[in-house]
Design a protein around this nucleic acid. Structure first.
Lengths: 342, 342
DNA sequence: TTGTAGGCGTTATCAT
DNA sequence: ATGATAACGCCTACAA
């Protein structure tokens, strides 16, 4: 393992010059720089990151705090973040903080306190817990994905808007009996689910329609189970479903098929996400791109890492409607209503 | 930010004693230790990881190299690894190395060379590329998950065995026209897929049956598309399917349902994985637990990190058959054959 | 049992 | 444009 001293000796200069030549900070004659770099190359010199972190105070490492790794949204965000960091030469260290676990406590108490990072990306921390504020308190730049924050920069989908658009799409098609599937309630459960439910409720009320919410686990099996329940009673059956997310929507489509209910002629379904499976199920949905959100968050963060006084930024993305085959006018309605519902 | 010097001063001892009291290395009077620790607590002392890494040569950080983050298997492995590391106070830095990308090259050339870790977990590196050997060459302990290696410790499923068991299960039930669905071929594509196909082939031949392989993308939509193709021709239709993995199997089940082919009465399907969705689809499968594999890999690695001369270990796991509703005797066969097929 | 002092490998300040 | 030299914060012989 050759250190910078070996490089310096090999190039016939001092450690200081070698360091300048290698990092690019400060004046070095072009010829010397070239010579130093060549020697470094020959020796296979790799700077010790702990030594340079100690000297500079910067780690070239970004921390990512996430409650789950094995869900589509989170894995996609992570890939987006990773791609940008990789390109910029930053490491990524992952802090898995499952809600309500001892491990999460440790992440906040012990791990994050070590500050082995120049900045932090926090994904979907629940705002109620004020954890985001604690992260900001650590004293490194923080970018929040999903959750709003007064202090940190934010990258997120406008979930209320997405749910309103989904609902409006069905209303435009002529549906009146539209049920929202998934989540706990509008005052409990994950914040995202609540906002989506809220968007649906306000859109329904604005159109003078009766809203109805069937709770379910926000997952494919959750959507399946709840939909089997809901759809098997012909009396209660709606003509359309707004799902809390694509996985729930797909669960519902699978349930409908099993029960012999044709989609979309007997039942329309809209999701939110544009999940990787949505295309295969012909699901009409509101697209959000978690990968791009992750990439945007990483870029925002690096800016702040480089210019510590950079302004806090907020990106609130509008989902784009992708119409596929899972939605159509309800049974008995043949023409499509015109005009957008707010 | 108080350093160890502040703690030492506060406790009325030297930096050396403070360090010993805090790390637990070397003799310190119980009373002094308590006092030092109390002062450290009061001051909110957090050791600088770069300084202690520089001094000790250890980072308390583990690197994980993975080709994908957004697939079920990989995300599960990662969660297993993370859980163990978290409990042991180790950080996890993630190196996303997508096959055949510029990013992957950089991971190997630049990032890993920095050695910001005490050990490495490599998941599903293709053996042909000899990347595993390069990782071992870095000079830190390496544990490989999935891929075999002469030099690194290995945690993996016995894929050949799993596929044989899956096939044998169908043969036991009386099936003869059994098709393998998924992957490229037995001499191309990811190694895992090849081994599974190989297990199927050898089991079929051993039973004197004609094997048949339908390639497909190893994913849910891939399984769906290939199955639609295969099943829509009644002439060619097999009575049973061994899928390269559960996602392919589920895709096939969905395809069968769409085509009105009853599972299992007209078509049996076996998968390999026990994916989170498998239960919902009543899929008979061979269970592997990627989360446990990840945890085992992490534990193995930490052992080696702590005792650098620890022996190389190899864990080859046997999948357990979980019989659900997707398999039954073929049409026309009512009793189940007895006796295992090798 | 505790303290002293040197070293870990870089970077950065200040002369030259 | 380059070279000494002092941090950076902690650990660990070795000495006391």
């Amino acid at each position: 393992m050759s250190g910078i001293e070996d490089v310096a000796r090999g190039a016939g200069v001092s450690k200081a010059t070698a360091s300048r030549a290698l990092t690019g900070h400060g004046y070095v004659a072009a010829a010397t720089r070239a010579r130093v770099r060549r020697v470094a190359e020959e020796l296979g010199y790799v700077p010790s990151s702990s030594a340079s972190s100690l000297a500079t105070g910067r780690t070239r490492n970004i921390g990512v705090v996430m409650p789950y790794l094995n869900r589509w949204f989170f894995a996609e965000v992570l890939e987006g973040v990773q791609a940008v960091l990789l390109a910029e030469g930053f490491d990524l260290t992952l802090y898995d903080a499952k809600p309500g676990t001892e491990g999460r406590r440790r992440v906040f108490e012990d791990f994050l306190a070590r500050k082995r990072f120049d900045g932090l990306i926090a994904v979907a921390l629940e705002p109620d817990d004020h954890e985001l504020e604690r992260l900001v308190g650590i004293g490194r730049p923080v970018v929040s994905v999903v959750s709003d924050s007064e202090e940190a920069s934010v990258v997120r989908l406008d979930d209320v808007h997405a749910a309103r658009r989904a609902t409006a799409h069905l209303i435009d098609l002529g549906h009146e009996r539209i049920t929202f599937l998934g989540g706990v309630s509008d005052h409990d459960g994950p914040h995202v689910d609540r906002e989506r439910l809220g968007g649906y409720l306000s859109c329904m009320r604005g159109a003078g329609l009766d809203p109805r919410h069937i709770p379910s686990d926000v997952s494919l099996p959750g959507g399946y189970d709840a939909a089997v329940d809901l759809l098997s009673d012909p009396e209660r059956r709606p003509t359309a479903l707004v799902a809390a997310c694509d996985e729930v929507a797909i669960g519902a489509i699978i349930a409908a098929r099993r029960l012999g209910i044709a989609v979309p002629s007997a039942l329309s379904v809209v999701g939110i996400d544009n999940h990787e499976y949505s295309d295969m199920f012909g699901l009409t949905t509101l697209e959000q791109s978690p990968r791009e959100q992750g990439a945007a968050a990483a870029e925002l963060l690096l800016e702040q890492v480089r210019a510590p006084d950079a302004a806090r930024t907020e990106m609130r993305l509008q989902a784009r409607l992708i119409v596929r085959g899972s939605t159509s006018p309800p049974p008995g309605v043949r023409s499509v209503a015109v005009g957008a519902v707010p």
